[in-house]
Amino acid sequence: MRKLEFLLALALAGAMIAAAIAAPWLRFVLTIALAKGIAVMGILLLLRAGQVSFGHALYIAFGAYTVAFLAPRLNDAVLLLVVAAGGAALLGLVIGLFVTRYRQIFFGMLNLAMCMVFYSLLEKLYHITKGSDGIRVEIMPVAGQALDRIAYEWTIFGIALALAFALGALLRLYLVSPMGEALKGIKTRETRLEFMGVPARGVLLAAYVVSAGVGGIGGALIAMTSRHVTPLLSYWTASGELVFIAILGGAGGVLGPFLGAAAYELIRVYAAASFADAWQMILGTALLLVILFAPGGLWGMAARAIGGRSR
């Protein structure tokens, strides 16, 4: 099963690379999908604890705006990724300190509130953030190497893919570690955790900070790919999109977010291309079909198809 999951990940990566070579415009779409997949891994971590955050777009937007603001000064993609991840994790720690006191709908709504506060700040501080017009991000050197546009786009795609693998592997380890297993405890019965001497808030806070950090990385990658950031990144629909991807992909394994994000972006692109008026309906139908017929999401379906047990 573990081996199969790895092989499936390799196959998915191979398909993405093949598609990106064959159709240059898909490279852009798939880089965005990978970035969102990385961010959704954070949602998945919280879903393990039974908590749905409706505000994780906050960390994506924070990562993206970190890149937009610091790019002229730091001017290196690798450095900016580190700063964006660190900054988002720090912000996650501050916000996490009080949102992890709450559970269920209160947790979700408080996150949503934070995300909308950030959205309003981006809109209101017009002279700093340029409001809804947004800020342009120019092509930047990667690890000291100045690149032309095509090489840069490939490099960011490569970095996104490598980060997806590395972070996926790390998160997989985290989930089977005691800290990760304790998340499941929060979902089933939190009091039992406390009786065992495990601080539930600490466990959730740690997961929350990690999820904020990967959100920041996802946001930084989105900013480096679309090269224009707007406050819309932090709007509630963007948060909803992340939860949508998590459900579409399935919460069973770390591959789920990437399956979900790739499927989501491709469905959206093809739906928008074929039916410019009704793409929302097609996305909604896809999600309904998954909820009705494959509650484990795409990952659940894939796991069943390769004969393993799906969670």
């Binding site: 159709a23 707007t230 959206r268 928008a272």
Partner: peptide, 23 residues
């Protein structure tokens, strides 16, 4: 060929590439 501006910037930037490179 019409494309909806509604979904936001990152979608639209991708759509422009699609229009030029695929369509």
């Amino acid at each position: 060929i019409f494309v909806d501006e509604g979904p936001g910037t990152d979608h639209l930037v991708g759509e422009i590439r699609r229009l030029v490179q695929a369509e």
